[in-house]
Nucleic acid binder design. Structure first.
Lengths: 218, 218
DNA sequence: GTCTATAGAACGATAGAC
DNA sequence: GTCTATCGTTCTATAGAC
């Protein structure tokens, strides 16, 4: 039976995408354990069994979501960094530019997600703080290489710092990013409703300035 | 200190404490949704029904744990801050001292926890990134007043900054703290195993230095 | 490919004996 | 206060009709 409701071609991919999109939304709200397949399929307006048909299991669905969201982001980060290295060669890329390259793709939210999809930043914030076991290997799989490239360039930009100092401060920089990205609502609570947690451009700018100053410590 | 090892009096309090302690351990590992009462009672070596007898429900158990861990920490923060304000009066407390006062109680891990209890910092890291609904009011209940006191003193210490600037940078400071506190393991991954994620003294020092520099931005 | 129906397991909570 | 036993619910995953 290949007769869906509106479109006649590639129904399967459309269902797959609808499921992925719904997974992003539901996962961002409550994390992996709180996310049920019933909730996802209800949100995606597909049948419960479709998840297991397209993804095999809840865990595989989760892995597919992460790949779908992390890989484009990280590819863009890598590409932008290489562009900057070329542009400044043979000089090192300034620290502010390096961190802008690291942070901006998160906030502008590229990826395969459709337009009015759940904000990418919320999905990533949740993923980075996810306690589930399967997340242990997440850093290795998605961030080990990337971290090394960025720390290498930071080292070129700050040759006076020891590798240990760079590692500590890079860790703290990423910590700030993660803490910022988890819940922008906290900004509204802290400011008693005066600052807008959804003003991502402004937050990105403040984050970069803060981290660069913290890194340089002078 | 009324119950040494195998005392026969006030068994109930002992059971209560065992449950609380086990809850801290299990919660720190996987968060609220992943924590099951069966896991907690197995860990505490008490009966499953004991939880509902002593705490009524899983949610109440969670609330009791948070109160048990957050309140002593926040009281110490408040007390230390007031001490510093007195000590420096009428001058404002230096920014480094303010942030040390905010961060240190987290890392030294005071509280009602017994000695070889789960590291307080892990419980708090998990709680601060917990997606569950009941956490929405958490900031209000435990941190609203505290944040205001600290921002007030920061404002005295940095009178040249606008309230908006202070709010943004305080938000970023707390973000760094949270990101640091979630998983110290990330430090080991970033440094390729060369830095120790359990060296809390060192991390506290680096965190404070980083945040103060990021805050002052000069 | 998509559905209904359900198996099989785990959970929170409670009743009632001791 | 503490236990066993169990109820009612919800979950993932799958079998089988269409």
């Amino acid at each position: 039976m290949k007769t869906p409701k509106k479109d006649e071609r590639s129904v399967s991919d459309k269902t797959r995408q609808k499921i992925l999109s719904a997974t992003g939304k539901v996962f961002a709200q409550g994390g992996y354990r709180a996310m049920t397949l019933r909730q996802v399929t209800r949100e995606a307006k597909v049948n419960l069994a479709a998840v297991n048909y397209h993804f095999g299991s809840k865990l595989n669905l989760m892995r597919a979501l992460l790949r779908d969201r992390f890989e484009p982001i990280n590819q863009q980060r890598q590409r932008l960094l290489n562009q900057q290295i070329e542009a400044y060669a043979p000089d090192p890329v300034p620290l502010t530019t390096i961190y802008d390259t690291l942070f901006r793709p998160l906030f502008t939210g590229i990826g395969s997600a459709s337009v009015n999809d759940t904000s990418l930043i919320q999905i990533i914030g949740r993923a980075l703080t996810e306690p589930a076991e399967f997340m242990r290997g997440l850093h290795k799989e998605f961030f080990a290489d990337l971290s090394k490239c960025f720390m290498d360039e930071i080292h070129r930009s700050c040759p006076e710092l020891s590798p240990e100092q760079i590692q500590y401060r890079f860790f703290l920089s990423v910590s700030t990013m993660i803490g910022t990205v988890i819940e922008q609502v906290r900004l509204e609570t802290i400011s008693d409703g005066k600052l807008d947690g959804k003003n991502l451009d402004k937050i990105l700018h403040e984050l970069t300035t803060f981290v660069v100053a913290g890194f340089q410590q002078r």
